[in-house]
């Protein structure tokens, strides 16, 4: 089965196409805030390079975050609309899983750390198993200093990967059980996505487009404020449309 993968949860836009024989073609560009301009032409290019027509695709895979909201909207809206138009199923994969994937043969504890802006990082922790990677800590959002402290409180070796680990390097100084992966792996890639998605496709772990939801890990600002201080908002009891 041919799978098209779309990953836009970081500043990098990436797209790949592959199947049981691995990734046939892939492309990626790192240019902040240009997801909307870059993605569609990249999909066309990747399919053309692999000489694949859209109707030959069997599934659309997408990185569902956590990540930058702007990028996620572009990638997920694009992927869902393609699956809808082609009437094919989807596979959603955590963008943190995609970061960890290339390091799946490491004996260390893998820590995927993405820049979440606003002085925070998205992170999750993994260890290698014969079948692939096993999540030890579920995706979360928090201050890099807190994550660093948490890691130091555990014994054992940690291998950090992701643009969050790069950006907040001062919190994650190498040594004392902390090591950094190659910077070339700092963004979740569609190359990893297609491989992970193919493994899921073999197990027939598909979902319908309406079951794909972005992982935000953060409430919208207004909602967070609402929860904190509902008393300050104007009364809306009489509101609503007639």
């Amino acid at each position: 089965m041919l799978i098209l993968g779309v990953e836009t949860s970081s500043t990098q836009v990436s797209c790949a196409l592959g199947g049981h024989e691995g990734v046939r073609s892939a492309a990626q560009v790192n240019r902040d805030q240009r997801h909307a301009e870059l993605l569609a032409p990249m999909i066309e290019q990747v399919c053309r390079a692999a000489e694949v027509q859209y109707r030959e695709l069997g599934a659309i895979a997408v990185g569902v975050g956590p990540g930058l909201f702007t990028g996620l909207r572009v990638g997920i809206a694009t992927a869902k609309a393609m699956a809808f138009a082609l009437r094919i199923p989807m596979i959603g994969v955590s963008s943190l899983d995609l970061l960890a994937f290339p390091l799946r043969f490491s004996p260390k504890t893998i820590v995927a750390v993405m820049d979440a802006r606003r002085g925070e990082v998205f992170s999750a922790t993994y260890r290698a198993t014969p079948g692939g990677l096993q999540r030890l800590v579920e995706p979360q959002v928090g201050a890099p200093a807190e994550l660093a402290e948490e890691l130091r409180s555990h014994s054992g070796d940690h291998l950090l990967v992701g643009d969050g680990a790069v950006r907040y390097a001062e919190h994650f100084a190498p040594g004392k059980g902390i090591e950094h992966a190659d910077r070339a792996l700092a963004h979740p890639s569609a190359w990893a996505l297609v491989q992970l998605a193919h493994a899921q496709a073999v197990r027939e772990e598909f979902v319908a487009p309406e079951e794909i939801h972005p992982t935000y890990l953060r409430k919208p600002d207004a909602e967070a404020n609402w929860v904190q201080r509902p008393g300050l908002l104007p009364p809306t009891a009489a509101g609503g449309r007639p």
Binding site: F69, R73, I76, A77, K80, A81, F84, P209, E210, H213, P214, Y216, P220, D221, A222, E223, W226, L233, P234, T236, G239, G240, R241
Partner: peptide, 26 residues
């Protein structure tokens, strides 16, 4: 999305974007 925004007394951009993602295909 009127119901979603009513309790905030105006349109909240992040709430709007999230709702569009869910509603567009249907």
């Amino acid at each position: 999305q009127i119901e979603l925004h009513a309790r905030f007394g105006g349109v909240v951009p992040e709430v709007a974007s999230r709702a569009h993602i869910e509603s567009l295909n249907p």
